[in-house]
Amino acid sequence: MLLEEFDANKTAIINPDMCVEKIENFPEVTISCFSEELFNEVLEFFRAKEIASVHSASGLNPIYEVTYKGKRFAMFKSMVGEPLCVGQYEEIIAMGSKRLILLGNCGVLDKRIEDCGIIIPIKAVRDEGTSYHYAKPCDTIDVNHNYRDEFKKVLKEFGYPYVEGITWTTDACYRETRDKVNKRKEMGAVCVEMECAGMQALCNFRGTEFFQFFYAGDNLDHSSWEPRSLSGSARLDDKSKIMLLAFELGLKILEKL
């Protein structure tokens, strides 16, 4: 089986540090989201300074330095889909990123989870391919080893309820069939997304810290698909406040360093 051919050798033929240069004094905490609308909305809050960019055939993706409550953070927009998301962050790690807080939308497999509700994943089902190049094969990977308690304190301080549970990471958003949804629910999954398993595997492999949380979007736990606030422009004010929770977590992380 091809996906059982995990190679733990950290030196590949092409390595990220061959493609980017290290940035001196890179901020200790990096924050990212996927939505362009959300990213641009939050970026307007800051006096942002571009410190680097990730190059690809799709164009440039800038990385900014921003200041939140007197503390420096790096901030960039992640690519949607695990291979792109992982490859992009490989280069940002090579630039100097040490720890990443990543937030994004997810589909819910439990209709009791409210639209835009906060979900903290504790494990990811590896129904994808990228993570198998960064970790030995198995069906799941533990996620959010660090800072779960700190994030819960942030949520309590700002009055946000949350759900903890297993997430289903898949590469194929148009192949989430009813049978597959039911099987993942039997495994304990409460939501579905496209990046978490691979991003945790990458950060484990590279020895960097990673924390991801979701805000609930579309509902798959229904006789027919319910998009709810899946659109990037839907409930943008609520999502902007949710993204600021990542910066609050970043403050708590900086306090511990």
Rank of each mutant, 00 (worst) to 15 (best):
E91Y: 07
E91N: 10
I92Y: 15
I93M: 04
I93K: 08
I93Q: 07
A94E: 13
M95N: 05
G96N: 03
G96I: 08
S97G: 10
R99D: 03
R99Y: 00
L100I: 13
L100H: 01
I101C: 02
I101L: 06
L102E: 00
L102W: 00
L102N: 09
L103Q: 11
N105L: 07
N105K: 12
N105C: 11
C106L: 09
G107D: 07
V108Y: 03
L109N: 08
L109K: 09
L109W: 15
D110M: 11
D110S: 08
K111W: 10
K111M: 02
I113W: 08
I113S: 09
E114P: 15
E114R: 14
D115T: 13
D115N: 13
D115V: 09
D115P: 02
G117Q: 12
I118N: 02
I119Y: 00
I119T: 03
P121H: 06
I122M: 05
I122N: 12
I122S: 07
K123V: 04
V125W: 14
V125Q: 00
D127Y: 10
E128L: 00
G129F: 14
S131D: 11
S131E: 08
S131V: 05
H133D: 03
H133W: 15
Y134F: 15
K136H: 04
K136V: 09
K136Q: 06
K136I: 04
T140P: 00
T140V: 14
T140Q: 05
V143W: 10
N144E: 04
N144Q: 07
N144F: 09
H145E: 11
H145P: 09
N146M: 11
Y147T: 05
R148W: 05
R148V: 10
D149Q: 05
E150S: 13
E150H: 15
F151H: 14
K152D: 12
K152Q: 13
K153T: 06
K153D: 08
L155G: 05
L155K: 03
K156Q: 14
K156H: 13
K156S: 14
F158V: 00
G159I: 12
Y162R: 02
V163D: 01
V163H: 13
V163M: 06
G165K: 12
G165H: 11
G165C: 04
I166Y: 11
I166R: 07
T167S: 15
W168K: 08
D171R: 02
A172Y: 12
C173P: 05
Y174N: 13
E176Y: 09
E176M: 03
E176P: 15
T177G: 03
T177R: 12
R178Q: 12
D179R: 15
D179H: 11
D179A: 15
K180R: 08
K180L: 14
N182V: 15
N182Q: 12
R184H: 13
R184N: 11
K185T: 08
K185C: 01
E186I: 05
E186V: 05
M187W: 15
G188T: 10
A189V: 01
A189T: 08
V190S: 00
V190Q: 01
E193Q: 10
M194F: 06
M194T: 04
M194P: 12
G198Y: 02
G198T: 04
M199V: 01
Q200E: 13
Q200F: 14
Q200M: 08
Q200I: 02
L202G: 12
L202D: 03
L202E: 02
C203W: 08
N204G: 02
T208G: 00
T208I: 15
T208F: 03
T208Y: 01
E209W: 04
E209A: 11
E209R: 10
E209V: 07
F210D: 01
